[in-house]
Amino acid sequence: MSIQISKVNKHFGAFQALNNIDLNIQSGELVALLGPSGCGKTTLLRIIAGLETPDTGRIAFHGEDVSNREVRERNVGFVFQHYALFRHMTVFNNVAFGLRMKPKNERPSEKIIAEKVHDLLNLVQLDWLADRYPEQLSGGQRQRIALARALAVEPKVLLLDEPFGALDAKVRKELRRWLARLHEEVHLTSVFVTHDQEEAMEVADRIVVMNKGVIEQIGAPAEVYENPASDFVYHFLGDSNRLYLDPENHILFRPHEVALTRQAEADYQAAEVRDIRPLGAITRITLKVNSQDEPIEAEVIKDHASLNGLTRGQILYFKPKAVTTAHQ
């Protein structure tokens, strides 16, 4: 099911949380809403689900206006950032909830419900936890149960609010890959919120970059990374260096787009080595140029020739390789 969001505005009192949002999501797509804290990601997600009403604008599912449709009639699966599992119900009953709430004539028998719940629990690989209560689960397990619960009613759209936000880095990585695989299998139109650019790049078909209630750019991960539409997008999608050519003009480039040598060469600029950080496959070097206070960071493979015997305080020569953007 495709989603069309047109000219959506939302205020909380005098504060404008969303400003003229236009966004079309294709059927079966996995879209990431990416942006810093407070930029309106959750608000947009809640408006799509019907938990919040926009001041103006409309939401359509598959071309059909759902602005006036109640939450329970939108058939949206929603995974909350803090899971919101029903604390007094077992895992099994949590997942079965949506099926049991159906009107009598549509409600499956308890036997079919049980089968379906176990299928879903198998899908999230947690069938053995069926009789536990939410408080007896780890964060990652709760997360997956919340997902199984949302999938139980066979939603047309799946909305996930920072699904991995509260988890540690390793579990996050596992779960996000698992989500990407799951999406390959079920192909549900999905929107997920994140403020982690790496997560968005890794999982999403398209990324929507938001800032202060407006959409800065929409595009495939490679597209927004290679051709950022604004300085904001450039900075938000990865580490970046700013090198001033003169007081008015600067260029932007990423740490891995820096060439380094030990000897002075044409087009290369001298800089003092302030710090050397081995980070596994690559090493990060912090450089200080005389013309500006802002340091320059360079990342090169760990056995790069220029690193041989390098110590702090020495002089290195650097040159931005392909400068990606030169915004003002």
């Binding site: 689900a49 929603f78 803090h82 919101a84 599992l85 029903f86 949506g98 709430m101 159906k102 619960r149």
Partner: peptide
Amino acid sequence: QEEEAARLLG
């Protein structure tokens, strides 16, 4: 949130 989750689940 739990109430919202319930409504979302129909």
